[in-house]
Amino acid sequence: MENYDAQIAFTLFGYGINWTIVSTWIVMAVLVLLAFFAGKNINTNKKPSRLQTAMEAIVLCMRNQVREMSNDEPLKYLPLVGTQFLFIATANILSILPWFKIPVSSLSTTAAMAFMVLMAIPFYGIKNAGVKGYLKKYTEPTILLLPMNVLSDFTSTLAMAIRLFGNMCSGVIIGSILMLLVPFILPLPMTILGLFSGLIQAYIFAVLTIIFVSSVSPVKKETKEEK
């Protein structure tokens, strides 16, 4: 199996740094540098640069999507959701480089991202509706379903981690198997399919994050209207 966690890239201060961490750093560096150069000289007087326009288009598109899906102020969720989407999408696009080891095909990375979502659910829930309104979500139809509701938070985020890992990992494995059998031409369509499904998975991960994270906010409005 293509296990990038076990492949040591180099050693730093006596610790082996594996390829998952190295490629995560590469993706982070690409994102940070792009954002830095796009936002380096922003002013209202002169014409915006082409990079800045492209970045603004991406951010605007994400904001509109978040606004439609959460029915809420998009800037509240955009830092979390947009970062996850951009990270997964950039990792996928960079995977067309032959030597690049895609970091999302490691269960550690996806589990960390799903854990972020698991922590963000109570954070945004309490931010939206207060502690009482957030805890009320778990007793929604009846109090009898409390264990099920608590469990569903954990299982849905775990499913997000496994889904992303499985999709990415299957793409990598199919690519490497075809590379062993037929090194010419034939891996190409599978790579394109992997690129497409990777971007779809990035989108789906972001959509599911918004759905889980913004699940509490309508409760607040309803309770306010009732009172």
Partner: peptide, 10 residues
């Protein structure tokens, strides 16, 4: 539809 398909795919 995309989200539903992703959930079916799980």
């Amino acid at each position: 539809t995309f989200v539903c398909m992703a959930i079916c795919e799980t």
